[in-house]
Write a protein that binds this DNA or RNA. Sequence first.
DNA 1: CAACTGCGAAAAATCGATTTACCGTTTGGA
DNA 2: TCCAAACGGTAAATCGATTTTTCGCAGTTG
Lengths: 358, 358
Amino acid sequence: MAHQGAQQRRPSIHDVASHAGVSAATVSKVLAGVTTVRPENAQRVFDAVERLGYRVDPLASDMRRAKRRIIGAIMPEFESEFFGQMVTELEGLAEQRGYTLVAASSRESEAREKEILARMHDWRVAGVVLAPVRNEHGPAAAFMKANGMTGVLIDRVLSDDAFDTVSADSAAASAEVARMLVGKGHSHILVIGLAEQAATVRARLEGFRAQALALNPSVRIDVITAEVSVEPLRASLRDYFGRGERPTAVYSLLLKGTLVALSEFRRRGWHCPNDISLVGFDDAEWMQVTWPAIAAVVQPVRRIASEAMNLLFRRVEGAAGPPTARLEPCQVLMRESVGSPGSGPHSGGGDRQQPPLS
Amino acid sequence: MAHQGAQQRRPSIHDVASHAGVSAATVSKVLAGVTTVRPENAQRVFDAVERLGYRVDPLASDMRRAKRRIIGAIMPEFESEFFGQMVTELEGLAEQRGYTLVAASSRESEAREKEILARMHDWRVAGVVLAPVRNEHGPAAAFMKANGMTGVLIDRVLSDDAFDTVSADSAAASAEVARMLVGKGHSHILVIGLAEQAATVRARLEGFRAQALALNPSVRIDVITAEVSVEPLRASLRDYFGRGERPTAVYSLLLKGTLVALSEFRRRGWHCPNDISLVGFDDAEWMQVTWPAIAAVVQPVRRIASEAMNLLFRRVEGAAGPPTARLEPCQVLMRESVGSPGSGPHSGGGDRQQPPLS
DNA sequence: CAACTGCGAAAAATCGATTTACCGTTTGGA
DNA sequence: TCCAAACGGTAAATCGATTTTTCGCAGTTG
């Protein structure tokens, strides 16, 4: 803190008015760009603004309007690259339109999600971008509906009867993963996920299963899911492998699952892709620098963010009409963690792929 | 958007007042817990609040006070685990005190940092937690000083003559890394970093160098830094290895450097820890599930956050006195990426460590 | 019986903007 | 010549709270 009290009160619009010798209303008009002000008066206002270093107080300016120039963003967490990028994008887009983004983390709790939403309602935000913890049918969306709030649902949603939704096309991406794995000859595949996020996880699972079975009706697909946290998932996975199950590939429906799978592999001394292949939903920066690089589904963060903001502002500006449900295409990055079953030396040395020196 | 217009105007304090048959001032007092209100009137106010579902408008409530119950947080980015966790922590701590946290990303730009700060000043935030892009001497801190803002500087800072600072004890942690590496017998170590973040990077470098030389005066320490982005760092590193330099260990002073080092290792087909050892500043979730697990310095995020908030609110409440500079201790996690030089099979197979099955 | 003391509550001022209503002057057309 | 519209601007209302001031009514005191 600057302990020498440079705390001079900030100049208000009235200070500018008296310095310029006009009324506050005139100052307001000049700054709003109204043209029915005499040029000399406008100039004096600009001079006074300059001299005093005046800046509009956005909160005071918002007091009168029903919707303030604030957009709320509620994410399940901030720690992952995906939501971090999402917040960064949303912030920039809101800013471009002269709005401030207020982001909050629901910390994967539906109760907290609703509380945050209530607080944002108190703030009279113009709109909310909600990435629900679970899906579009949670208490938060119900609250928004009940209070006539404007909002867009993203990520863990499919479609809704009240709000526009934007999410990655999980089903299509999963189908592509299925094509890759089955195409490489995998016929026993384990899929892992967390079931709470019903909306997307189910889409991913079904998209994968349908495509895999279409390509090879005799493919065996095992599924392990846990309800809330990853630890039960880890336990189930450990138990599954402990029973002697040996799928040739694992498809993780979410980032945390990919981490769990990797740590279980290393616990057992299995190596990708020789002992088992791995593909995960959600990409991360580290996945391309590890040994092996991890194949992943990349979500179109920027497109989801910009599409969500477009839809949101359309509604903020009063657009009516039935809600739309958007699915943005993903990119599947094939990397070294995927191989053909039984092609590499099994559980032994010499497993490294040595890329040529440039 | 709920297209059936459930947009009923929210009840104001006057609605509550008229429903309760008292004045708005009385309602305000009751809700503020003033005791000089007749119990029966207080009860009628509570009833009206309940019936109408009234909640205070925090913005209107803040209008009269000079400092609003808002805390600003400015981070260089949101994409990394470190800053993601930091924002999550800060948000919770602000909330506990009845404040709203407004977070913004400077996107590693000092110009943007200052703009955001100006906007937060417009908002009349009570205080700011600033994680500067570079160090405590940037334009943002100067702006805060010039405008008498209350704030705390964190992370990439050492100490300041105007603001309290809180950061990880980079020097001590680096010294411990030096003890580990030199203790394992490494005598040619490469340190990589980005020089722009002068404050912490220099502390880390000097802490490391001093300790390493104290333990082994003949140790060779090479340093590669780049100015702004990681790509020049990657180029320099590539060039360095290309010249035939073969340190036995690399210490990266920041997370992005760790990624660059890893990707260069894999480009050349080198393997940790047999071909080269690696330690990085900043831990990440994935580092313990890769092969090998990456040794890292863990920053005490929670402690930094809570200490910063404590100091900040002390100043917000008017505490005077000279600024304090806090250093919070780090934890160094030794993992498989660090070995003794020349102990493993060099550049060959069989490099995996197989942990026993439980 | 007038003046004084308290108490509880209402009225009014305040915060910093925007917006509406209104008021003189010009200017224009009929 | 006279009324009306256009112009340029100001005072006041407004937004939703908090805080200060005032007020009315009891009950005491001199």
